[in-house]
Design a protein around this nucleic acid. Structure first.
Lengths: 149, 149
DNA sequence: CAGATATAGTTTCATTTGCAACTATATGGA
DNA sequence: TCCATATAGTTGCAAATGAAACTATATCTG
């Protein structure tokens, strides 16, 4: 008995998409303008700043970026001297990527800017609001990730 | 004193993007495979099913799709005979779009499927969870929409 | 009413993205 | 060990996207 009608405005996938696009447009414009970075490039830097050395594959799973985009983003970052690659002693097909000194310096500039943007975005959110949003997003992500039919 | 460090995993814009991509990938694949529709096309149909006739401009603001994509999506739908255009008596530059009988029939198929996917995605969400998510997404969207510097 | 300016929508072109094919290395079985 | 198959990463090509130019109509100003 699904008499329930569909209203796009109240449709959660739609709300999610609209919110994500709004945020992403805003933030990616800022990365781009201020640091010349695209989103995947920025994500690689953020992850490499937390962990030391990683293979493209590990970066892909840590950032949710597919291997093609990781490859392209890494190439761009190497070109700019922000990350460096060395052979992976454990697997000749792969290599290990790490931030260079320049990369670290750039990260030191971006990280506070990113946190500031996030803070601006979440202005007025209580700690609970924030935790709730985080948890709900993870649940949805998990539900969407698992496939059924 | 922002000693706080950045962790991508806990960064809300990142969580939002990952969740939205997961959902959008899942759902858009389904629209595409089952009905041959891209996301903007599906959105135009959903909005036109709620309201009767609309101009491309109105559709754009109702769906959050830019005018170029509205134009292309509308062209594809007209081509398929799912919507029809007539001159706008109030403005010769514009026209009015509405679902055809075929369009309505397709909508009658898609709407339940869309609601089912949403239900699957939100399985385990209480009514409160859902309302909370909706509200938080709208707040973020508003914060991201308004520009500051 | 004529000319200037603004707006609706489309089209063209450059950029971005994603898939599929490719290269190189690794692994597992005869 | 040698061959078959699998996996890491890259590249080339085709489709999707977005910005800027364009056409047509509307509105505003003198």
């Amino acid at each position: 008995m699904s008499i329930m009608t569909l209203r796009l405005d109240a449709f959660i996938p739609y709300r999610l998409s609209v919110a994500s696009n709004a945020v992403s447009t805003r933030i990616s414009a800022s990365y781009r303008k201020r640091f010349g970075l695209k989103v995947p490039e920025w994500r690689l830097i953020a992850i490499l700043a937390e962990a030391s050395e990683m293979t493209p594959q590990m970066l892909g799973s840590a950032t949710g970026i597919d291997k093609i985009s990781v490859s392209r983003a890494a190439a761009a970052l190497i070109e700019r001297g922000l990350i460096a690659a060395r052979d992976n002693p454990e697997d000749g097909r792969s290599h290990l990527l790490a931030l260079t000194t320049d990369g670290r310096a750039l990260y030191a500039e971006i990280a506070p800017a990113a946190l500031a943007m996030e803070a601006e975005l979440l202005a007025g959110f209580s700690v609970e609001d924030r935790a709730c949003l985080d948890a709900l997003l993870r649940r949805i992500e998990a539900a969407a990730g698992a496939d059924s039919s």
